[in-house]
Design a protein around this nucleic acid. Structure first.
Lengths: 110, 110
DNA sequence: TTATTAGTTTCCATAGCTGGAAAGTATAGT
DNA sequence: ACTATACTTTCCAGCTATGGAAACTAATAA
């Protein structure tokens, strides 16, 4: 898929705090659709749509075990987000070092 | 403003390729609203709304010179985006190094 | 086979985004 | 004072996002 379209999907998926919260749960461990529905007080239908959207954006992937569907974080996709940010960064003058340092110490502000 | 709400605004603003294109223009130099309207073949009204949205997200700021309004990239906001990404990254095992390397060489894939 | 469980998809109502047109505001020019 | 320029805001129409309810599919259990 075209990069611009992929970035549209990725950023749109990230533009919702509930979906970001889902990702944070998944970054710790895989979860079934039902588990996520319970944790976020949404119907199965509603959570299923959020998950499809996250999958469209390649931020997660699913595996099936019997009736259950496990959702997993797709860690590789963050490379694409990082790439976009560094592309923006290349226009900066001396701010790239600042950003690198910031990322390398884990995003903590001083 | 609350961090979650700010991230909503930032990612939503980034979820549109036209707005990302505006940001790329502004990362090179400040531009007036009219210049941007011409470059993107939008009416002044339409572009003005995109710019307000970008300003709400703190991705740009405006300065006035007479009748003209100059739009400037707000480079500092990318720290917040980088922070979110590194927060996600802290859950990864050995993928952080990979991401760091990727960012440090400018987002090029090999 | 029949019933239950786990998800997905469809339908519908509500709400929000987007863009053009047009009206409104503020600054500059004559 | 009057006109033109540079935007912003409002109004309206069309499209999309979201969520619940209900219908539908697939896999397990009895």
């Amino acid at each position: 898929m075209e990069t611009n379209k992929r970035l549209d999907l990725i950023f749109f998926a990230l533009a919702d705090s509930r979906r970001r919260a889902i990702l944070e749960e998944l970054s710790e461990d895989k979860k079934t659709v039902s588990e996520l529905a319970n944790n976020f007080s949404l119907t199965l239908g509603a959570i299923s749509k959020h998950l499809s959207l996250l999958q469209e954006a390649d931020l997660i992937y699913k595996t099936k075990q019997g009736r259950q569907v496990f959702c997993h974080m797709n860690f590789d996709i963050w490379k694409e987000v990082a790439s976009y940010i560094s592309m923006q960064a290349k226009f900066w003058n001396n701010r790239l070092d600042e950003l690198d340092g910031f990322i390398n110490k884990g995003g903590r502000d001083e």
